[in-house]
Design a protein around this nucleic acid. Structure first.
Lengths: 338, 338
DNA sequence: CTGAAAGCGCTAACAA
DNA sequence: TTGTTAGCGCTTTCAG
């Protein structure tokens, strides 16, 4: 067994209260006893038991983070930021992979409740009523990252997707493109689906360019495969398309891959702009021009806000829109050059 | 405050001991009281407090996982497997990002010790003496994933890197390549560095092909940038190289990117084989032929073994070499066709 | 079948 | 400056 505070007290010939004070840096002892106790701690290799502390303090110094997919490149960057902020604030993070399953999410939420985590970060998924109820039961701060809740008032940290999509499309337009298509997400996705399509549409309209349903393909997910399969159908719908906006980098790269196979040159014959700025965006060829979400920063910010909320340094959580930028690489060509 | 076992007992007019028995599925009560208690639990929304349980059971149902970089694509796949296995076994996982810093690693280990985690998974990094000492102090099972310890006897789950590299090289040779180069890792890396270079070298020798220091470039890391910068120097050292083996997918793709920029066609003029089979391997163009490590499986297996060890279902942990395969895609051409 | 009570390791009054 | 003591919420003997 690990030595306990009692062992230390006995070894140093003091009471456990004194040891506790010294360990916690509270006032109330002489330099002399302090030294004695520290020697005892050293000699015994004493480590305070965080579990016992948690029981009494009602604080576990732990937060839970829920992702739909921990191995996704998007999640993992966000996670890194969260973990970093948590660590700096003296918290540990428990990761939960919901796999987008409602049952699993609820199960995890219950678990986090039993483990008495001090706060929760919920990422990239819509908040169902079920979840919201548990959040309320738990009475711990909850923060949404790269998602928002349509139905409930929960603080979030994310990018303005409408704006991001709008500017991405505008970027294409300003490069002289007039026939622009979009590989979109799901119509039922109120977070990454609808707003990005809306941003695309409104950008076209602002510049008086043609827009119809034929300009967009929708997809179940935002993966490579979705993009790859979407390109041919978009091409059929919009034969003289010179540029496209994909609602995710993975889809953009899928489209790029399909283009290669079809013998379509990127960007000479087809310009592509993505969304996310994952690490792969600069690894593919040609390197992908994309809307950069500050993923790690978003995680970090969410973590920091959550920690402040837990510590009571901040009372009301205010939502944050994070700035995005358009990162120009090689996948978009300028039509005006010709 | 959350309701406690006391509240339930009072509500149901029984003792806390009885509630405890029912909650834990132990025998010793009538159907009648069981019903009463369950109603009380329902009515109060009682959730057992895992912290209090942990204090008494000396089990937190939590494991710690340490990665040098949680946002790496390799780490995140392993993490997914670990999380999955842990969850199935009734454990939560705390992630720790060591950033390859010794100090930070030690700090985390201490933290996990204080939090009384039941086991540890240590990934992708060499085990320093400092760490090993803490492992021993903690007296919890430790499992290494995709790494091994040269100095200490710790169970691991990984791929045989020498064999993987050997077969990757052999694959190139069997496709008729004779001038083969390698973009290697670090000479000081006993895990992914040395064995892969050795595998490369011995494969060449087995087939009586030329080998010299000029056939390998070494790198600090295994990143895209390393590969990108390595290609030109390797090309200078080995001007008539027709194929190369990169010690990681990221480096392979970096080399591919550099090749594109130099106007070298892959695979027609230069074949490339990677190592890892990350998700990006099938996303790049041409899709990367590579040595596939079953990353998620490795994490899953490690998680499962650790859980068994914790539960005492297994006494001695045996190390496991996981099978790898060569995934043929489009980045290697067959010279014999000509 | 059920309850009283001890105690897990610690913190925080309250005394001394 | 120090020690005593009462819990935190739970499990687990040990009686009844």
């Amino acid at each position: 067994m690990n030595p306990t505070i009692k062992d230390v007290a006995k070894y140093a010939n003091v009471s456990i209260a004194t040891v506790s004070r010294i360990v916690n840096g509270l006032p109330g002892y002489s330099e002399d006893t302090k030294k004695k106790v520290q020697e005892a701690i050293e000699a015994l290799g004493y480590q305070p038991n965080a579990i016992a502390r948690g029981l009494i303090n009602k604080r576990t110094q732990t937060i839970g983070v829920l992702f739909p997919e921990v191995s996704g490149m998007l999640s993992s960057e966000v996670l890194e930021g969260v973990e970093n902020a948590a660590h700096d604030g003296g918290f540990s993070v428990i990761v939960c992979n919901t796999t987008s399953s409602g049952k699993r999410t609820v199960k995890y939420l219950r678990l986090l409740q039993e483990k008495r985590v001090d706060g929760i970060i919920f990422a990239s998924e819509d908040v169902k009523e079920e979840y919201y109820k548990i959040f309320q039961e738990m009475k711990v701060p909850v923060l949404l990252v790269s998602t928002a809740s349509s139905n409930y008032d929960l603080p979030f940290v994310r990018v303005n997707d409408f704006e991001g999509a709008f500017q991405a499309t505008e970027h294409l337009i300003k490069k002289g493109h007039k026939q622009i298509g979009m590989i979109g997400g799901s119509k039922n996705d109120p977070i990454a689906g609808v707003p990005r399509m809306k941003g695309f549409k409104e950008a076209l309209q602002k510049y008086s360019l043609a827009f119809s349903v034929a300009h967009i393909t929708t997809n179940e997910g935002y993966r490579f495969q979705n993009g790859k399969e979407s390109l041919p159908v978009l091409l059929k719908q919009l034969p003289n398309m010179t540029a496209l906006f994909a609602a995710s980098d993975e889809m953009a790269i899928g489209a790029m891959s399909a283009a290669h196979q079809l013998g379509i040159k990127v960007p000479e014959e087809l310009s592509i702009i993505g969304y996310d700025n994952l690490k792969i965006a600069e690894m593919c060829y040609p390197a992908l021009t994309t809307v950069s979400q500050p993923l790690k920063d978003m995680g970090q910010t969410a973590g920091e806000i959550l920690v402040k909320l837990i510590k009571g340094e901040e009372k009301e959580a205010k939502s944050r829109y994070m700035p995005f930028t358009i990162v120009e690489r090689q996948s978009v060509c300028d039509l005006r050059d010709k």
